[in-house]
Amino acid sequence: MTDRHDKPRHTTGEEALERELARLGRLAPQPGPDLVARVLADADALQAQRHGETAPVAARARPAGSQWWHVTLGLLGGRQGLAGLATVALAGFWIGADPPAPITALESAFWGVSVTVEIQDDPLFTLED
């Protein structure tokens, strides 16, 4: 008995109306593929714009190919700077010590991890015998 009094009483007309409204809700129009594509294109464009301008390097997808090297070379002072870093790193290796701390810090800040192996594999960084 008390359960019945928990909800406000409806007239029959009001109940019928609510049922019809709910039925109308089940006939909801669905978004077509064109609209979905437009919405996602907006999302992608804004995301790309935002990250292209302001995202920290660590949060971006890693650049590929020549762009990757452009950024790296620029930050490390071009090919000459890179060769200098290689010389210092090799010197550290040969004398049995860790690589110089400033270089390690620079690498970490840029990539979040060391890139020593990849630098050695790249033809741009082939060392002269």
């Binding site: 109308l24 809700g25 909801a28 129009p29 669905q30 978004p31 609209l35 979905v36 919405v39 996602l40 999302a43 992608d44 995301q47 935002r50 990250h51 995202a55 949060a59 971006r60 997808a61």
Partner: peptide, 27 residues
């Protein structure tokens, strides 16, 4: 995730919310 550049986040949010937004606007 979307703010951080995740490419899938916008798709899930769209699947979840676009139908009801469209339905409401249509009505």
């Amino acid at each position: 995730l979307y703010s951080n550049g995740d490419p899938g986040a916008a798709r899930l949010l769209t699947v979840r919310h676009l139908p009801r937004v469209l339905a409401f606007a249509t009505r």
